[in-house]
């Protein structure tokens, strides 16, 4: 078998193994499906009454942010999965086989996309129930979902790298909370950036989570016409990712 098809064949074997795991470990699946509902409902109703967005409903504003946060949490499963395989010696077993070594990571990141597809579906349905609407075209909405998944996929690779350096499930779990909470909160996910104090505002503007959220928001048409972007200039350049 030549090198390139072999990478794909090996990746498929590893991904298949992980898919079997998704089915057999329903606890993780439960977490993946319930967390997004919790996020939408909690943020929507707890913050929803306190935060006012000019010209838009907060829940509409919020949903794209919750999407971005949830797919990021979904991506941490990659790190946890790889750390677990490292701890149990499975990675060493793989490495002693004549397989493509990149397939070990590629298979994992590929199968973890499934988690995020599932949580996006659940989140979208919950969002629609609490008053979120797609106001743009269907094509743009699909593009937004694709962008969110692509973002999560790239975070998966970052998590995979971290897991290779720190192969401990516990450390990865705690560390990812410590990184993902600030990243997803100090952004335009839950509040408009201009409401943040100055140093945080700068961080939020440069935060890739803001960029993805803003892009998704625009693609979903959740920014009412006439509402200026949170900040002209840098931020709108960022949001032109589309």
């Amino acid at each position: 078998m030549s090198a390139v098809p072999q990478v794909f064949a090996d990746t498929a074997v590893i991904a298949k193994r992980n898919v079997i795991k998704i089915r057999r470990v329903p606890e993780v699946l439960m977490f993946v499906l319930v967390t997004p509902i919790m996020f939408v409902v909690l943020f929507g109703y707890v913050f929803g009454n306190a935060i006012q967005i000019a010209g838009s409903s907060y829940r509409e504003f919020l949903i794209a942010g919750v999407f971005a946060q949830t797919v990021m949490f979904g991506a941490t499963f990659t790190g946890v999965g790889i750390a677990e395989d490292m701890e149990k010696g499975i990675i060493n077993r793989f490495r002693s086989l004549p397989m493509s070594s990149s397939a070990v990571l590629a298979g994992r990141t590929a199968s973890d996309v499934i988690y995020n597809v599932l949580s996006i579906i659940v989140m979208a349905c919950t969002g629609l129930l609490v008053g979120w609407r797609i106001r743009g075209s269907l094509w743009d909405a699909l593009l937004a979902f694709g962008l969110l998944l692509l973002f999560a996929y790239s975070i998966s690779w970052v998590m995979a790298y971290i897991a290779l350096i720190i192969p401990s499930v516990e450390v990865i779990n705690n560390a990812s909370f410590m990184v993902i909470f600030p990243l997803t909160f100090v952004a335009n996910t839950f509040v408009p950036v201009e409401d943040l104090p100055e140093p945080l505002q700068t961080f939020a503007e440069w935060n890739p989570v803001s960029t993805v959220t803003q892009a998704a928001r625009e693609l979903f048409g959740n920014i009412p016409p006439g509402t200026p972007n949170p900040r002209p200039g840098r931020c709108s350049t960022q949001s032109s990712t589309r």
Partner: peptide, 15 residues
């Protein structure tokens, strides 16, 4: 050409 059986039985617990 080799087989390796490690110190920690490297079998996948879910499979």
């Amino acid at each position: 050409r080799i087989g390796l059986s490690g110190q920690y039985a490297a079998v996948d617990e879910v499979l």
